[in-house]
Design a protein around this nucleic acid. Structure first.
Length: 563
RNA sequence: UGGGGUGUCGGCAAGUGGUAAGCCACAUGACUUUGACUCAUGCAUUCGUAGGUUCGAAUCCUGCCACCCCAACCA
């Protein structure tokens, strides 16, 4: 396949993300006798649905494994019982597989390693590298110091290993209340890196875990559990986003002090931001919980399930991630790049159909009222093998309201009073008369057709530049279409004061439901999720939840520029 | 005022001492029974900034500036 050709909708995404510093690191390791098969992982916390930003993290890890013949794990990072739910676990695997990232190294749960985490903690206590601290949360904060001032040692820092061991076991046994004690690493309270100021390893949490039930009342912190999970699974390259850069020294401390032979290493990349798009899980959850959207798969959401419902393909999303690139620099990728990626793919394969989203009636006055005929129209002019379909024509039609201008702007090519235009695949018509209602709205156009021009050039050689789409009134099916500006957008955020509630800046019109659309009859048989190009209107897909509704995947580029 | 990062075209992003790739966006023209698609052309004398080293610097050195992350018993 031509490397530059757009994949057909439904093709498996290309694995390789192209040259980037992550691949460079791995190649450098391999060149120096790495001695182990590359092994990566995607470790989401099951506290929300995957979004397009997750797709970047997934694909960086997945593609790194595939490119170097390694394995890729899915691991639920479920070390905090109060935030995690099974609903999210199910959705994560579904979305991961839909994207095309096969977890061929296995699917794991961080919570399955609780016992090992506990055992390693006892080991650290025994070796004097960890201690039980009785400071409460406020006291601990006070002892931690600030960004510019070193912290002070906890009064419990010199506790003997024996005493800490006894206390830690009693913590596990449930003798103490939440927040009364923690297990801390003995590192350096004066470290300029806050993460190294005796970080908490285990905390007491009498909470029900979505998988472990009530088996535990002490839970490991991310910074302790994550390197252990990676090491146990044999992860070689732990690729995460850049906000964890400050945690790497602690990650290494855990790996080194527990004494893992095969050490995993953490590398960081910049997370994905897209212009005008809310990407924070916190806000996405808020949108769902406050009912501002219909759910995590509301087509305006940037979640993978919403993108899927809207008609985006896995390959278009991966293509987007690839084109956006992988680096460590803060970035804000133009959402038009995403739109380009899906448009590129759909243009190559989507079947063309005529649809009128905002109809205006057209009566062909010189066409017999009872007559019907059909015209064969190409399903995809770029692909002859897509064949043709017969489209019914009659004296009463609908055209798009936007395709007529009573007072046309300069360079107008479509219908105007006294003007001619081609009905795609059929006759050239001329507008003779506008019929208006009492309010002055145009309700009907009365036109004459040049009956010699049935799908051919006029014999007299005159040029008719505009071509518009149409639908026969008697043969059309009714539907509703959802039109989107783009993903759930933030408007005027630049002007927002600090501590903004971004919910106030969400664009309320990023979804517009337009009922009363007239579609070509063949579309009645379309399956939910099938993608078509509505000629001149954009790419649409039949909604998977609302049978009679069509979601606009993306507009055609520049097609409405003159308006 | 500490530490860790990052700064190359409007947005991404290559480049690792030899004289600024590519993509998106944008503009112009051609083609067109989708003003789509496609095609052609244009779009950084300059790499946050000021010095320095060098025959030669986006790439090396020094100072400065801007932005991001870190003070959860979140991940």
């Amino acid at each position: 396949m031509n490397e530059n050709a757009a994949p057909a909708a439904g093709d498996a995404p290309v694995t390789d993300l192209g040259p980037n510093f992550i691949y460079d690191i791995i190649e450098d390791d391999l060149a120096h006798g790495f001695g182990r098969a590359i092994h990566t992982r995607f470790p989401p916390e099951p506290n929300g649905y995957l979004h397009i930003g997750s797709a970047k993290a997934i694909w960086i890890n997945y593609s790194a494994a595939k490119k170097y013949s390694g394995l890729f794990n899915l691991r639920y990072d479920d070390t905090n019982p109060v935030r995690e739910e099974d609903e999210y676990v199910r959705s994560i695997e579904e979305d991961l597989r839909w994207l095309g990232a096969v977890p061929d190294g296995g699917i794991f749960y961080g919570s399955d390693y609780f016992q090992q985490c506990y055992d390693f903690a006892e080991q650290l206590i025994r070796e004097g590298k960890a201690y039980v601290c009785d400071l409460n949360q406020d006291e601990m904060r006070a002892f931690r110091g600030t960004l510019t001032q070193p912290g002070k040692d906890s009064p419990w820092r010199q506790r003997t290993p024996e005493e800490s061991m006894d206390l830690f076991r009693r913590m596990k046994a449930g003798e103490f209340a939440d927040g009364t004690r923690t297990l801390r690493a003995r590192i350096d309270m004066a470290s300029p890196n806050m993460n190294m100021r005796d970080p908490v390893l285990f905390r007491i949490l009498h909470a029900h875990h979505h998988r472990q039930g009530d088996a535990w009342c002490v839970y490991p912190m991310y910074d302790f559990a994550h390197p252990i999970q990676d090491a146990i699974e044999g992860i070689t390259h732990s690729l995460c986003s850049i906000e964890f850069e400050n945690h790497r020294p602690l990650y290494d401390w855990v790996v080194d002090n527990i004494g893992f032979e095969a050490k995993p290493h953490q590398y960081e990349f910049a997370r994905l931001n897209i212009t005008h798009t809310v990407m924070s899980k916190r806000y996405l959850r808020e949108l769902v919980e406050t009912g501002r959207v219909d759910g995590w798969d509301d087509p305006r959401m940037p979640t993978l399930c919403a993108l899927r419902r809207r008609g985006y393909t896995p390959s278009s999303i991966v293509s987007f991630v690839r084109r956006a690139g992988v680096s460590k620099a803060y970035s804000n990728v133009d959402i038009r790049l995403l739109e380009y990626c899906i448009r590129e793919e759909l243009n190559a394969g989507a079947l063309r159909r005529m649809a009128v989203l905002d109809p205006i009636r057209v009566v062909i006055t010189n066409y017999p009222e009872e007559k019907e005929e059909t015209f064969p129209i190409a399903n995809n002019p770029l692909d002859e093998s897509a064949g043709t379909r017969e489209v019914a024509f009659s004296a009463e039609l609908y055209i798009e309201r936007e395709d007529f201008a009573e007072v046309p702007p300069p360079k107008w090519q479509r219908l105007r009073p006294e003007g001619e235009v081609r009905l795609a695949g059929a006759y050239i018509i001329r507008c003779d008369e506008m019929v208006k209602d009492t309010a002055g709205n145009i309700v009907e156009l009365r036109c004459t057709a040049d009956l010699e021009t049935r799908n051919e050039k006029p014999a007299d050689g005159r040029k008719v530049k505009g071509t518009i789409h149409w639908v026969s009134a008697a043969h059309a099916v009714d539907a509703a279409a959802c039109l989107y500006d783009n993903l759930f957008t933030l408007e005027n955020v630049a002007e927002a004061p600090e501590d903004t509630n971004y919910m106030d800046y969400l664009n309320p019109e990023s979804l517009l439901l337009r009922p009363g659309c007239k579609l070509e009859a063949v579309l009645a048989d379309a399956q939910p999720g099938e993608r078509f190009q509505f000629m001149r209107m954009g790419y649409f897909c039949k909604d998977t939840k609302n049978e009679n509704t069509w979601n606009r995947i993306v507009q055609l580029k520049d097609s409405f520029k003159l308006e």
